[in-house]
Design a protein around this nucleic acid. Structure first.
Lengths: 342, 342
DNA sequence: TTGTACGCGTTATCAT
DNA sequence: ATGATAACGCGTACAA
C-alpha cells in the first residue's frame, strides 16, 4: 500500500509475485495469459480490493473515462430524461457522466466545445438536440478523434453515430387522429426555426392534412419556440381567429400547456370547445387539467441506447447492436374530442 | 509539440529556455518568481496556446478537477435548477461537473458513494437534499478527505459546509397569509418522512396555526411524498371531509398541482371553492390554471453559492464569503382567495 | 506466456 | 529565484 491508502498495481504485482504488466493484462482481459496466473492475480485483486486508478489510466491512454453530455436544450424535463437514460447505461461501468451546456447562438460555441473536448480528453460525447443537428459539431468530433452519438428527430448521421425518432410519421398519425374525430380547422403551433424536430413535426402535420384534402391557411400556423409562454402567445392569436380552430396541434407539451392556459383564461372548455394534442409526453402533460393527449417521445430510451453505442466495444462480441430508430406513439388522454357542431 | 498535437509543459520550458518547474510555477501562480522570467514564460504559453493537461495534474495532485453532484431528489426541475446554478459557478474555471444519482434506501449506498469518491478523487461534492441530510454521508466525506457542501432546509452543518434555506419561517409566513384571508379550516399535505424539508415546512405551518389559535385536527393533515400523484390522492381524502377545508397548503408544487387536478376533477373551482399554496416555485406553478401561489425556493442560487464555496481558495483573499442562508419568499398568484361564506 | 524499461504530463523535494 | 530528479499509477514496445 502507498501513503494514499489505496492499493496500486504495484502492490498487486508484488503480492501476486508477478510483474505489473501481467496485472495490467488481467485488468484489460488480455487473451494471452495463463489460467493459473490469471486466477492468482484475480484473487489478490479481490483480497486487496484493488481498483485501477482512473487518473493514471487517463494519462497513459490519453483518454478519460468520462462521457460528456453536450446540450443546449431549453426543456428541463427533457434534459433530465436524457441524463437518466445515460446514467442507466453507464451504471456499473467505469464511466462517469459530465454535463456540458453550450450556447448555440454564441459565435465561439465551436471553439469552446473544441477546447473542452481536447482538454478533458473525453471518451465520447452524447449530443442532444438541437446542438446535435449541427453538422459542424459532428465534424469537430471526428476531427479531434472524439467518439460521438447524435440524438435527433431524423437520421442525420450513420447508425453508429445516430439515435433518431420518427417524429414526422408520429405527428402524421396524431393529426390523422384529429381528422378522424371530425376536425377540419386545425391550428399548428410550430417549434423554433433551426430545430430539426420542429421541421419534422410540422412536415408530418402538413402531410396528414394534404393527404386528407384539408386546407391549411397560413393563418392557422403560429410560431413558437417550445416554451410555455410562446405557446400561450401563439394560442391567443389562434383563438382570436374567426372562425376559431376546433383543434390545435402543438409541437411540444410545454407549448400545449400554454395553449390550454390561454383557453382557460378566456373561459373556453377543453376539449369541448378546443381539442389539443402535444408532443413529448413530459410529466406536465398528465398533470394539467384536462390531461393532455400527446405523442410520447422515448427520449430516455434513446439516450440509454446512445450511451451504450458510445461505450460499446468495437469488437461487437455477442452483444446485440443498439437500435438507431425509436418509435413515438400517441397517448390518448382527455384533451381531444369531436368538435361541436358548427 | 508531441504527437498528440497539443503542446506540453516541456515544449513551453524548452522554447522559453527555462525548466519545467519554472513553467509549473507560472501556472500555479507561485509568488517567488522573477518578473521577467514570468513574463517570458507567459508569452510562450500564449503563443503556443498551451493548456495544462488535467489528467496529468490529477495524477500528480492525486485530486481531480471534478465537482460531483450527488443527489437522490425525485424532482426533475429541482435537479436541473441545481445543475444550472452549479454550472454557473463552474463556468470559466478548470472544473467540470459530474452527476451521480444515489439510491437512498439502498443498503450499499454509503459503500457505493465511498467507492465513487475514492476512485474519481473528486475535488469536492455538492450534496443535494434529501441525501444531504444524511450525516453519515458528510462523515464519509470528511473521513476520506473530500470537500463537501450540503444543501438543505435547515442548518445541518457549519457554514463552510452548508447552504440552507429558511423553509420554516417561509411556510409560517405563507400560512399567516392564508389566515389573513379568513381561512380557518386549512389542510396540510406533508412531504415524505425523513425529508428535513418536510419537517421544517410542516413545523412552520403548525406554528402559524397555533400562534393564531386555530385548531388543527389530525384529519386535516395528509401524507404525501412530493409527487403529483401523492398530492392527488391526499387531496381526494381532504376534499371528502365534511366540512371541507377552504384552503390547502401543500409542501411542494408538484403535490399542489395534484391538489388542483383533484379539485377540477370534482368540479371545484380554484380559488373560489378552494385556495391552494405550494412550495418551490417550479415552472409548473405558473403554468397550471389558475396560476399557483407558492413559496419561491431559491435553489439555483443556493447551488451556485455551494459550488463557489467548494472551489473557493481556503486563502479567502479579497473574495467575499458566500452566504450560507437563503430566504424563501411568497409569490402571490391566482390560487388564493377569501373563503366563501359558510 | 511473462518481464524490463520507458513514456504519459504534471507536481514535489531538495538542492543551488 | 531557479533547476535536476524523482514521484504519481498505469500502458506499451520490445525482449526473453
Amino acid at each position: 500500500m502507498q501513503r494514499t491508502g489505496q492499493p496500486t498495481i504495484n502492490d498487486v504485482a508484488r503480492i501476486a509475485g508477478v510483474s505489473k504488466k501481467t496485472v495490467s493484462r488481467v485488468i484489460n482481459r488480455s487473451p494471452l495469459l495463463g489460467d493459473d496466473t490469471r486466477r492468482r492475480v484475480e484473487e489478490v485483486i479481490g483480497d486487496l480490493g484493488y481498483i485501477p486508478n482512473p487518473q493514471a489510466r487517463a494519462l497513459a491512454l490519453r483518454r478519460n473515462f468520462l462521457i460528456g453530455l453536450v446540450h443546449d436544450n431549453p426543456n428541463a424535463q427533457t434534459v433530465m430524461n436524457v441524463q437518466q437514460g445515460m446514467l442507466e447505461a453507464l451504471h456499473d461501468t467505469e464511466f462517469e457522466m459530465v454535463v456540458r451546456p453550450v450556447d448555440r447562438g454564441s459565435a465561439t460555441m465551436l471553439d469552446d466545445l473544441r477546447r473542452f473536448l481536447e482538454r478533458q480528453r473525453l471518451y465520447g460525447v452524447l449530443l442532444m438536440p438541437p446542438v446535435s443537428e449541427n453538422d459542424m459539431v459532428a465534424k469537430l468530433c471526428r476531427a479531434i478523434g472524439c467518439r460521438y452519438v447524435r440524438m435527433g428527430s431524423a437520421a442525420l448521421d450513420d447508425s453508429p453515430h445516430m439515435v433518431a425518432s420518427n417524429d414526422r410519421e408520429a405527428v402524421r398519425g396524431a393529426t390523422e387522429y384529429l381528422l378522424a374525430q371530425g376536425h377540419k380547422r386545425i391550428g399548428l403551433i410550430g417549434g423554433p426555426h433551426g430545430f430539426r424536430s420542429a421541421r419534422e413535426r410540422r412536415a408530418g402535420f402538413e402531410e396528414a392534412l394534404s393527404q386528407a384534402g384539408v386546407s391549411l391557411p397560413r393563418s392557422l400556423i403560429a410560431d413558437g419556440n417550445y416554451t410555455f409562454e410562446s405557446g400561450l402567445v401563439a394560442a391567443e392569436r389562434l383563438l382570436d381567429l374567426v372562425p376559431r380552430p376546433t383543434a390545435v396541434f402543438s409541437c411540444n407539451d410545454e407549448m400545449a400547456a400554454g395553449v390550454m392556459h390561454a383557453a382557460q383564461m378566456r373561459g373556453l372548455s377543453v376539449p369541448r370547445d378546443l381539442s389539443i394534442i402535444g408532443f413529448d409526453d413530459t410529466p406536465i402533460a398528465a398533470h394539467i387539467w384536462p390531461p393532455l393527449t400527446t405523442v410520447r417521445w422515448p427520449i430516455a430510451s434513446m439516450a440509454r441506447s446512445a450511451a451504450l453505442k458510445l461505450i460499446a466495444n468495437g469488437e461487437e462480441d455477442d452483444e446485440v447492436e443498439e437500435p438507431s430508430l425509436f418509435l413515438s406513439t400517441l397517448i390518448r388522454r382527455g384533451s381531444v374530442a369531436s368538435p361541436a357542431i358548427d
